[in-house]
Amino acid sequence: MAKTAKAQASFESALAQLEDIIQAMEGGDLPLDTALTSYKQGIELIKFCQGKLADAEQQLRVLENDELKPLDLTDGQ
């Protein structure tokens, strides 16, 4: 059985596992019980990833003295 979100070592591995679950579920060939288990695992992975992103954002706020500014992607145009 696949690892749970709590056992994930990194954001990247959790995201890759979530992508695998999505791909399998989109295939439509999973039995109902397996689909429900995968859905629950996906929810756990989403919560884990959201937590990791929130932690990263908090670290950026600390590093930027709570002056986090929106990213300007216009390349100076």
Rank of each mutant, 00 (worst) to 15 (best):
M1V: 14
M1R: 14
A2H: 15
K3P: 00
K3I: 02
K3W: 03
T4Q: 04
T4W: 00
A5F: 04
K6H: 01
K6Y: 00
A7D: 09
Q8G: 00
Q8H: 01
A9N: 01
A9K: 06
A9L: 02
S10V: 03
F11V: 00
S13N: 08
S13C: 01
S13H: 06
A14S: 05
A14G: 08
L15N: 13
L15I: 05
L15Y: 14
A16D: 13
Q17P: 04
Q17I: 04
Q17R: 07
L18P: 02
L18I: 08
L18F: 14
L18D: 02
E19T: 13
D20W: 04
D20Y: 01
D20G: 06
I21S: 07
I21T: 05
I21W: 05
I21G: 06
Q23N: 12
M25P: 02
M25W: 04
L30I: 07
P31S: 12
L32S: 12
L32E: 13
D33K: 13
D33A: 12
T34E: 15
T34W: 07
T34S: 11
T34L: 13
T34N: 07
T34P: 00
A35F: 13
T37K: 11
T37G: 10
Y39C: 02
Y39F: 13
K40W: 11
K40L: 12
K40Q: 15
K40S: 14
Q41W: 08
Q41G: 06
Q41I: 11
Q41D: 11
Q41A: 10
E44K: 03
L45W: 04
K47W: 10
K47P: 05
F48P: 01
F48N: 01
F48R: 03
C49W: 02
C49Y: 05
G51V: 09
K52M: 09
K52T: 11
L53C: 14
L53V: 14
L53Q: 06
A54M: 06
A54Q: 08
A56Q: 10
E57A: 14
E57F: 15
Q58H: 11
Q59N: 07
L60N: 11
L60W: 15
V62C: 08
V62G: 01
L63W: 13
L63K: 15
L63E: 15
E64H: 12
N65Q: 03
N65H: 09
D66K: 12
K69E: 13
P70E: 00
P70L: 01
P70K: 02
L71P: 01
L73Q: 07
L73H: 03
L73S: 01
T74N: 09
T74D: 08
D75W: 09
D75M: 14
G76T: 00
Q77K: 13
